[in-house]
Design a protein around this nucleic acid. Structure first.
Lengths: 127, 127
DNA sequence: CCGAGTGTTCGATGAAAATCATACACTCGC
DNA sequence: GCGAGTGTATGATTTTCATCGAACACTCGG
């Protein structure tokens, strides 16, 4: 078993060059503070993305790879949806070996859009 | 005072049959409690509709007719947007003479989706 | 009863978004 | 290195949605 080193959270640290062997482009992230309200709402207006967010909220951080979600779309579309979620400041991604693991940016997103995530996550009778 | 009586809904009437004696069809409303989260978010994901909601929030109830809003779309599109807002439980409409006046369903919508309206209404630097 | 003002409906159009299939890039165990 | 596993990029197709113009419906004041 190999662990991901990469110290800890580098929120204020520029990602720069990872000390990993390969040269795989690190995913580009957008902080929730830089996300317009409309973009956040648009990102959460898609059933597939909401399913991803909900499933992600129910798992420990950095434990779910992109392919491990139960959504009825191919992997191309899936990749696209994760890009949208990243751009909306909803998820953070990190490369772990061949797979890309995810984390829901609960605190940061909540600070920027209070209550919005709770709204989407609360199990409702009406979807 | 005479109110719109509208004896019974005649949704399944054959086209062309207008046996009403000159009353306009009352707008069909959806209570926020019957609105899925996704529909609410989708309704608020459009810049024109957000502009309508914001402008409406800044005016007393039942004072704004549909045509009185400053949005860069024709009246056909405008009518469509109001229908969406109605369907999302965001606005209530009432016929007043030749015009249709509006009201933002603040309390009801807030009870169903706490914080969502505040999020959209708060004047943000980032739209 | 007519005409101006107001809003809806309909059909068409254009743009944006979701999706897929394919091809490509990277990592790791063997 | 090879090859399986994983995710991205690209291009094409489909769907969805916002928009418009025109026709229609309703109300009210002359």
């Amino acid at each position: 078993m190999i662990f991901i080193e990469h110290s800890a959270t580098r929120d204020e640290k520029e990602p720069g060059v990872t000390e990993r062997t390969g040269h795989r482009a690190a995913p580009e992230h957008t902080h929730p503070d830089d996300v317009p309200v409309l973009a956040a709402l648009a990102a959460l207006s898609d059933p597939v993305r909401v399913a991803l967010v909900r499933e992600l909220a129910g798992s420990p951080e950095w434990t779910r790879s992109c392919g491990s979600f139960d959504v009825p779309v191919g992997k191309a579309a899936l990749s696209h949806h994760f890009a949208v979620l990243r751009g909306a400041g909803l998820v953070e991604q990190r490369d772990n070996g061949p797979r890309r693991v995810n984390r829901l940016r609960r605190e940061e997103f909540d600070a920027r859009f209070p209550g919005l995530l709770d709204l989407v996550l609360r199990a409702d009778a009406l979807g």
